[in-house]
């Protein structure tokens, strides 16, 4: 007789049904690995504070086959995270105006990549040199 609003249950695979949602969930998922890598770095700091011996075991663990695999996986996911994140940033930044014209989204994304490359290079140079 009267209204009976129907609330559709969230589709169990809602994030698989749409490319945009899928990419989002994968991006969220990758943050686990970004977190994991931060934890590894934190552990390194703690070891360093504990003294030379602890630090060397830590380094050894990192260069073990398992350690390398974990780091490669983390790197891959972190790269994916960064790339998809860059993709949405233009949407989320205040419009940067140059002579009254907003900078196009592609330029902003490209800028992120360039900055990323420059920083990585700098880190490499400082650490490697």
């Amino acid at each position: 007789m009267t209204r009976r609003p129907y609330v559709r249950p969230l589709h169990p695979h809602w994030w698989l049904r749409d490319r945009r949602q899928f990419l989002y969930i994968v991006r969220e998922g990758t943050s686990v690995f970004v977190g994991l890598y931060s934890a590894i770095l934190m552990d390194g700091l703690i070891r360093l504070a504990q003294g030379r011996e602890a630090w060397e075991t830590y380094l050894a663990a990192l260069s073990s086959p398992l350690g390398v695999t974990v780091q490669v996986i983390c790197l891959a996911f972190a790269a994916f995270h960064a790339v998809t994140w860059f993709g949405v940033t233009p949407k989320a930044m205040p419009p940067l105006l140059v002579k009254g014209e907003p900078i196009p989204a592609r330029t902003i994304i490209r800028g992120h990549f360039i900055l990323w490359a420059v920083l990585s290079l700098a880190v490499l140079l400082v650490l490697g040199g």
Binding site: Y24, E28, V88, K91, A92, M93
Partner: peptide
Amino acid sequence: CTFVGACSEVCPKNVDPAAAIQR
């Protein structure tokens, strides 16, 4: 908001709510 950005992508009027929220 976890910064999905989908709102701004679908907005037919280019309102960019994601930008509003981040700011």
